[in-house]
């Protein structure tokens, strides 16, 4: 690019802009234009300021206001036929179709579930009572409602619930070794952690967490902003305070790991990875990870992990990545 002359001072440029505004106000006369011509002829600097102001004004001609969003977009006034979004939707559909087929080949159970998602796919839907569910990738949910209770089973994966209040019909989620009863509105259950553990995080109000294998009296009440882990055999751990933005980041496609083990982080990434991620050395499984990862680009996220941890990621093919100690 050729070197540009330095910008005129802001004061001078402001004057030029004020001229442009006046000339385009709809009440400018011929003598105003003559006066502007005289103003810009005063010095080369005036001329540069005037040209800069005119450019700015002319460029805005190639913009239009999108009536739907009320925002400025590129292009003249006419509207395009198809938005980029429609096209992307179409493409995304193809991608998920492939992923879904691949996934279905290995796992049959969630195929029969009432709601399920494929690799890298997040699903949002309402249950019959108006409870809102966000289902993370590779997850499956079964619905079993009766007049007495609202029972759902998280067969696989992770889900976030915003429960519709109905004291007469308790809302319960069963996931591996845990049964969670809503005492308020919003909570998250993650059942894809390593070694069959389940994590419960409460975003609003409270839930009662019960072990599937123990007596009903063995339960804890978990309040908002807290997380608890339940082991595969139904042992309920201690409640730990956790930031909601971090715990629920998956809803926006992010994974915020704060002192999580590598195997749990990989378990979360797997559901977005079109293929297999294998941890070869058990010595690296328990490495602590502090990272913000983008779930939607699992390859890059793997590289980011490799950059920050003493591990090596070996890609055997497009489908298989092996993690070992560096």
């Amino acid at each position: 690019m050729s070197p540009k002359p330095p910008y005129p001072s802001k004061a001078l440029s402001n004057e030029a802009l004020e001229w442009i505004v006046r000339l385009n106000s709809g009440s400018a006369r011929k003598r105003d234009r003559t006066a502007f011509a005289a103003w810009r002829a005063q010095s080369p600097e005036h001329e540069v300021a005037a040209a800069e102001a005119e450019d700015l004004w002319h460029d805005a001609e190639n913009l239009h206001l999108d009536p739907q969003s009320g925002l400025v977009r590129l292009g003249g006034r006419k509207k395009p036929r198809a938005s980029r979004r429609t096209v992307l939707r179409g493409l995304a559909g193809v991608g998920i179709g492939c992923a879904g087929a691949y996934w279905a080949s290995g796992v049959l159970r969630p195929m029969m579930a009432d709601h399920s998602t494929g690799v890298g796919q997040v699903g949002a839907f309402n249950l019959p009572d108006g409870t809102r569910v966000l289902l993370n990738a590779m997850s499956a949910l079964d619905i079993d409602y009766s007049p007495q209770r609202r029972r759902v089973s998280l067969l696989e994966g992770q889900a976030y619930f915003e429960v519709m209040r109905d004291i007469a019909r308790p809302f319960e989620v069963a996931a591996r070794g845990a049964t969670v009863t809503a005492l308020g509105t919003a909570f998250d259950i993650d059942s894809r952690l390593a070694s069959g553990r389940v994590s419960v995080f409460v975003a609003e109000n409270a839930v009662r967490v019960q072990s599937t294998f123990e007596r009903a009296s063995d339960s804890v009440t978990l309040s908002a902003g807290h997380r608890v882990l339940i082991s595969e055999t139904g042992r309920i751990g201690a409640a730990v305070a956790q930031d909601a933005a971090a715990a629920l980041a998956w809803r926006t496609g992010m994974l915020v790991a704060e002192g999580e083990t590598l195997e749990d982080v990989i378990a979360a990434l797997r559901t977005y990875y079109n293929g297999w991620i294998v941890i070869q050395d058990s010595s690296v499984r328990m490495l602590k990870v502090n990272a913000v990862l983008d779930l939607r680009t699992p390859q890059e996220s793997l590289d980011a992990l490799a950059a920050g941890l003493p591990i090596r990621v070996l890609r055997l093919s497009n489908l298989v990545a092996v993690i070992s100690a560096a």
Partner: peptide
Amino acid sequence: MADNIHKWLGDLFRHYHTEVV
């Protein structure tokens, strides 16, 4: 170093993510 990046990216994410989105 890389750990550091994640630390302050994490802080940014926690404090400003909603606002910046």
